[in-house]
Write a protein that binds this DNA or RNA. Structure first.
Lengths: 343, 343
DNA sequence: CTGAAAGCGCTTACAG
DNA sequence: CTGAAAGCGCTTACAG
């Protein structure tokens, strides 16, 4: 029964505990654990064993207090429930998690007051940087007040062009969809999409129009069918399109949910997809696109990559050196069964 | 042109800066800012103004180093893409965000190694507590190693009954659905659900069976149609049910996606919903349930409330005192158009 | 009511 | 190769 007064019981072990157990100074213990400075191999060994024995975990707060860096970043989202925020968040989390960085998550719920409150809190925790995730592609006001750390806006760009914003190339996405439909031999193409108040709707429509123009064509009616982003609108709009333009041989939809509604109506009307009419969606929302009849071809915005890119930019900005610039990322086409060469 | 050498330029203002500018000691500045100790009103005023002028934000790391508490918690999720994790996460974030607590988000991606790594990191950041969010309702192994802070498991309970677990009452949810269908006057009720390997599937089925038994009934075929959680299975199973049991007047589905497939098949077969057959889903996944034809009645698991409850439990555990116990939360029925009294 | 001093747990020059 | 000392930014008894 030896008494070992040195071993801590109720509190987490500190470097002092480790040093004591190893019979060295805290300075030496620190060096041994961090692999810094010249420490005799045997000494290092002893320290490491002591640390292990006490399951020592260095206090990151103390560390952060010293060095200029805390190894934390803030992830500011405007709405967690948004399907778009989540993959971005995953990508960013992944980009950081791989390193030594921990992520503070804050949901401002679209409220500017709450956002400011969270920014204050994050700054007082001395985050090394901030990622601001939007839920719409429309530009958003930049964070208020002086922010002493780098900020990267993702998905929704900052309204200030001097800020770093990483966004989806929706124009390119619209192009991609149309080019695919053209390659399938379709010529009479309608575009049914969401609320025209969304930049995303307008951008995708612009890209679609441009791709059609390149082929000497225009979308049916010369303009998109703007509406809302859901199935109900998709069903209604499909009825209108087919009635006005029986010759329609392809429909590009601004979202998978709209496409889903379009598919239902075409099914009700007995129009064969893709034989008679090809249908392409947007978002590549697995749950929606992969189980429709037929399974839906769609544009994927690569949101996870977008998040990861934002993470890397933030790293670069934190490390200083060459300041990263804003950038746009292209989507990609995911082909399923709702599009095919015309029969 | 006065020279004011005291005002910091490149670094964040510290309490020392504030104290200097206000012409008091740091101790007094600290008390003034925290409303602690007796400070003359005028003095406090001066300090507050100085703090404002320098946009002083107290260094939370330094604070955390002193007191035993850091005001941070770790939110450990096993998969961010899971639809179920997100509302829980929102609820928890909300419960904390309202207070002074910041949340570290870690996605272990279902990998035990990664989970351990994240736990280490969180502990070295001295979080005050941990919330572990599962993505299935099956019990999961408790966190490995000695965890010196309170842990609350949510959605997926810990396999160790001594741990605090906050879960959904799936048995009750199954009951709720069946009781509603019975109240609608249905008597020939089938149950189509997901993978029997999921505790959630078995629990919901058990609840359904119990509610039927209470009414002196049994589900058609005497047991659930187990399959997978998606629409494709819903479509296939609905065909089987209708063929074997033309008398079927209600189908309770283990998920909204299954229900969606069931609705499609019934539509194809020309069976009227809800007139001829009532259909109820589970999850109340807005995007799926609110736009089907007809709109889907479904059981909502109140996941956001679950997350908030977990947050409050963790608070209680951190504050010590009466240790909170594990608990189950009931779901609620959300009535839409796919169920109605029999004609 | 105010301030000097100690200390939280660590790291980093600087001596030895 | 090792250790004593200073210091990161704050708070908290304790004097005055």
């Amino acid at each position: 029964m030896s008494t070992e007064p040195e071993i801590p019981v109720n509190r987490a072990a500190t470097l002092t505990d480790v040093a004591k157990l190893a019979g060295v100074s805290v300075a030496t213990a620190s060096k041994a654990i961090n692999g810094r400075g010249d420490v005799r191999a045997a000494t290092r060994q002893r320290v490491l064993e002591a640390a292990e024995m006490l399951s020592f975990a260095p206090n990151a707060l103390a560390r952060g207090l010293l060095g200029g860096r805390t190894g934390t970043v803030g992830l500011l989202t405007s709405d967690l429930e948004g399907r778009f925020s989540i993959p971005i968040l995953m990508g960013a989390e992944d980009a950081f998690g791989a390193g030594q960085v921990s992520v503070f998550l804050c949901d401002a719920r679209g409220d500017a007051i709450r956002e400011r409150y969270h920014v204050r809190a994050l700054l007082s925790r001395r985050v090394d940087g901030l990622i601001v995730v939007g839920s719409r592609t429309d530009p958003r006001p930049p964070l208020a007040g002086p922010i002493p750390v780098p900020v990267v806006y993702v998905y929704a760009p900052s309204a200030n062009p001097d800020d770093i914003s990483i966004t989806v190339d929706n124009v390119g996405g619209g192009r991609l969809a149309i080019e695919h439909l053209l390659a399938c031999g379709r010529r009479n193409i309608a575009h049914i999409t969401g609320d025209a108040g969304y930049q995303a709707a307008r951008d995708r429509a612009d890209g679609a129009a441009a791709a059609l123009a390149d082929a000497g064509l225009a979308m049916l009616d010369g303009k998109p069918y703007y509406g809302s982003w859901d199935e109900t609108w998709g069903r209604a709009a499909a009825h209108i399109v087919v009635e006005r333009h029986p010759e329609v041989d392809a429909i590009f939809c601004g979202s998978d949910q709209i496409a889903r509604g379009v598919l239902e109506t075409l099914r009700d009307l007995g129009r064969d997809v893709p034989g008679s009419i090809a249908v392409a969606g947007f978002d590549n929302w697995e749950a929606v696109a992969a189980h429709s009849r037929p399974r839906l071809t769609s544009i994927d915005m690569n949101l996870e990559q977008l998040g990861a890119a934002a993470g890397r930019r933030l790293f670069a900005a934190i490390d200083g050196g060459d300041l990263p610039r804003s950038d746009q990322y292209p989507g990609r086409l995911v082909m399923r069964d709702s599009t095919a060469p015309a029969q």
